[in-house]
């Protein structure tokens, strides 16, 4: 077992944790993915709001696109930088430029998505405000940049050190789609179920009849999208990072061992899945005992 490979597996896992955190915070800041339906629904039931409303597409295809864009630009630049900076520095420098391009495209899409979404809410008197567009823009750019940078670097590590036969942009596409799926499946729950409905008592659940009845007032004035990561970075972001980081790390880690021949990763994978089943069961038992006081009419 080479130390370089072990370090690469650990680094890929660590970068995946960061990518997950930043991806979730970026989507929460712009109300992307499934909680977007609530932000879109709010004006229709009389709640005019100051949330940023960007549903460019579902998170998986969106992050597949940003990541592939970043990785493609990075691969093209890396071949140019190779002679001047050496292999490692050229990859890092090219990934930074690639992520910058992807984050710029993301920001443009976000602006147009917000304007067109808000314009479609005109019959319900939802105003289009310039500061609502401009204030969270640096946040999208920063979070999007960091998420794409991490995915691009993971793609380079997977291709160059872990020797995956896929080219870097295709690896970035696969990781981007998976990252978007995980962000949409885990971290967004904290935004859609808790942040948007903080007036409901914790643990009481959100009845379907209350959908769209989101919190529009903050401690001082109206709520805005800049405050959202302040809340979701405490839980939603880290759990997304935990999930994506664990997937990337465990998948690569299981390939490090050869005690049962070529079938060792499969054996380890089955053991991990059985452990996850037991963890899931224990969470279910714990929550059934802990959160059943609000479920009676």
């Amino acid at each position: 077992m080479e130390p370089t490979i072990i370090f690469a597996v650990a680094l890929a896992g660590a970068l995946a944790i960061l990518a997950g955190i930043f991806e979730d915070l970026e989507s929460d800041t712009g109300s992307q993915s499934n909680p977007n339906s609530q932000v879109q629904l709010a004006p229709q039931i009389g709640h005019l709001h100051r949330y940023f409303n960007k549903a460019i597409s579902g998170e998986p295809p969106a992050y597949g696109f940003w990541s592939t864009t970043g990785a493609t630009v990075a691969v093209l630049l890396q071949t140019r930088f190779l002679s001047g900076f050496g292999e490692m520095h050229s990859v890092i420098l090219a990934s930074i430029f690639g992520a910058l391009v992807a984050a710029s495209i993301l920001s443009f899409y976000a602006i147009f998505a917000h304007i067109s979404r808000t314009a479609s809410m005109r019959p319900f008197k939802q105003p289009l405000q310039l500061d609502v567009i401009l204030s969270p823009l640096p946040l999208f750019f920063a979070y999007g940049f960091l998420a794409v940078l991490c995915v691009t670097l993971i793609s380079f590590i997977t291709n160059m050190v872990l020797l995956n036969p896929f080219p870097v942009p295709l690896i970035a596409l696969l990781f981007g789609i998976t990252l978007g799926t995980i962000g949409s499946s885990t971290g967004d729950i904290h935004y859609g179920s808790e942040r948007l409905y903080q007036t409901f008592i914790f643990g009481s659940g959100i009845p379907i009849s209350k959908q769209g009845d989101i919190d529009v007032k903050a401690e001082y004035g109206f709520r805005n999208s800049i405050d959202t990561p302040y809340f979701t970075s405490r839980f939603g972001g880290p759990v997304t990072g935990l999930c994506f980081g664990a997937i990337v790390f465990l998948d690569n880690w299981s390939r490090l061992f050869t005690f049962a021949g070529k079938w060792t990763p499969i054996l380890l994978g089955i053991i991990i899945i059985i452990l996850l089943f037991l963890i899931n069961l224990s969470i279910e038992i714990y929550t059934r005992n802990r959160f059943n006081e609000f479920t009676k009419e």
């Binding site: 499946s185 808790e194 914790f202 963890i279 802990r290 959160f291 059943n292």
Partner: peptide, 18 residues
């Protein structure tokens, strides 16, 4: 499996539902 477990962790500790 991991996504299901982490989603359930979010439901349990972020939202408070079983």
């Amino acid at each position: 499996a991991l996504t299901s477990v982490v989603a359930n962790i979010t439901y349990a500790f972020g939202v408070g539902v079983a």
